[in-house]
Amino acid sequence: MEMQQVGEAFIRPGQLLTDRSSLSAAARWTQAVSEADGVCVVHLAAGVDPCELTAELRDQGLRASPNHVFRGQPLFFGGPASRPFPTPPISYKPGRSRSDVTVGLLDTGVAEHPWWAASDWYDDIGPEAADASEGLQAGHGTFIAGLLVRGAPGAALRVDRVLDGDGLGDEASVVRALHRLRERPPQVLNLSFGGHTFDDRPPQLVADAIAELTSTVTVACAGNTASDRPFWPAALPSVIGVAALDAAQESRAPYSGYGTWVDACARGDWLASSYLDTEQFGGFAAWCGTSFATALVSGTIADAAKKEPAKDVVRRLLDGEGARQIPDLGVPFPSSL
């Protein structure tokens, strides 16, 4: 994917993300427009800076953003947690129980695996949602799916592929996927990816699309930035931002994002889950990152949502009397996975 670095943010060069109401205001800088699922990507004329044009349009009260690049969040920048490691097969047999809860999973897709071979939801995802077979983060979505099905037995997954095999996707693809969820919104939505914005302001079109899913609890990773700089979409007030704890579940994992915008935390170090079936891995792996802490929190909420609305679950777990708070990490969600 072609991208350009602007400060600590990444954008698609020469692209502006907007809605129809702003197209006329951007017309004189426009070379072409592509529209799908209610999102317009304006391809700008040569030499036009999408960040400067965004600021100009926002000053007019219009919706606009550079087309930011989002990344999946295992530890992306190196170290022992930057890649999955082979692990022995995990003893887990899916039960026959069925839940009315659906968890949305926007990620690299989901590959075939014995844990969901007999599930209706996997039959429904289609070949376009299959996990990437090559790339630095191939298997990322499959790994997360395993954490979700074990954390919320019987729940169905609704899968949409928004990241490529290297874990990269753009804001336009994410907003379009969010819009597609409006017809049948899931109770819980897992977003184990994100990024910074060029101006540290919220990505407005993403925020709007999430806000339209009024009955959905959206859970997103705080990023593996080891900083308190807002990481989006986790830092949105309407989203549960999740940091990673170490394997002992006592302290912040050194790579994890943190800050007042983080709402919850869970173990992110050396989790084992489903993975691609390759010669090296055989369908299982161990991996680290806030991506996977996020899946543990999503699974806990989805499992509790069998008995009460997901929004009520969140209020009880995050704001209930006696809820333990860790400064800059939020409420810890214990896990036995």
Score class of each variant (00 low, 15 high):
Ile125Phe: 00
Ile125Asp: 01
Ile125Lys: 08
Gly126Ala: 03
Gly126Cys: 12
Gly126Met: 13
Pro127Arg: 14
Pro127Ile: 13
Glu128Asn: 13
Glu128Arg: 14
Glu128Phe: 02
Ala129His: 12
Ala129Lys: 07
Ala129Thr: 08
Ala129Met: 10
Ala129Ile: 13
Ala129Phe: 09
Ala129Arg: 04
Ala130Gly: 06
Ala130His: 13
Ala130Gln: 15
Ala130Val: 08
Asp131Ser: 08
Asp131Lys: 00
Asp131Met: 02
Asp131Val: 13
Ala132Asp: 00
Ala132Gln: 15
Ala132Phe: 11
Ala132His: 06
Ala132Arg: 08
Ala132Lys: 04
Ala132Glu: 13
Ala132Gly: 12
Ser133Met: 15
Ser133Ile: 14
Ser133Glu: 15
Glu134Val: 14
Glu134Phe: 15
Glu134Ala: 11
Glu134Cys: 12
Glu134Ile: 08
Glu134Pro: 03
Glu134Asn: 06
Gly135Tyr: 02
Gly135Gln: 07
Gly135Thr: 03
Leu136Cys: 00
Leu136Asn: 08
Leu136Gln: 09
Leu136Met: 05
Leu136Trp: 07
Gln137Asp: 05
Gln137Val: 05
Gln137Pro: 01
Gln137Ile: 02
Ala138Gln: 13
Ala138Asn: 08
Ala138His: 12
Gly139Glu: 06
Gly139Ser: 00
Gly139Tyr: 11
Gly139Cys: 08
Gly139Thr: 09
Gly139His: 05
Gly139Pro: 04
His140Leu: 11
His140Asp: 05
His140Arg: 02
His140Glu: 00
His140Thr: 04
His140Met: 00
His140Gln: 08
His140Tyr: 08
Gly141Glu: 07
Gly141Ala: 13
Gly141Arg: 03
Gly141Cys: 05
Thr142Leu: 01
Thr142Ile: 08
Phe143Ser: 00
Phe143Val: 03
Phe143Cys: 07
Ile144Tyr: 09
Ile144Phe: 09
Ile144Asp: 06
Ala145Arg: 11
Ala145Asp: 10
Ala145Ile: 02
Ala145Met: 02
Ala145Tyr: 01
Ala145Lys: 11
Gly146Tyr: 05
Gly146Ala: 11
Gly146His: 05
Leu147Ser: 04
Leu147Met: 14
Leu147Ala: 06
Leu147Gln: 07
Leu148Glu: 10
Leu148Asp: 07
Leu148Val: 07
Leu148Gln: 13
Leu148Ile: 08
Leu148Trp: 10
Leu148Thr: 03
Val149Ile: 13
Val149Leu: 06
Val149His: 12
Arg150Asn: 09
Arg150Ser: 04
Arg150Tyr: 05
Arg150Trp: 01
Arg150Phe: 13
Arg150Leu: 09
Arg150Glu: 00
Arg150Val: 12
Gly151Gln: 05
Gly151Leu: 14
Gly151Phe: 03
Gly151Tyr: 09
Gly151Ala: 04
Gly151His: 09
Ala152Thr: 09
Pro153Asn: 10
Pro153Trp: 11
Pro153His: 10
Pro153Glu: 12
Pro153Gln: 04
Gly154Ser: 12
Gly154Ala: 01
Gly154Gln: 00
Gly154Cys: 06
Gly154Val: 01
Gly154Ile: 07
Gly154Thr: 02
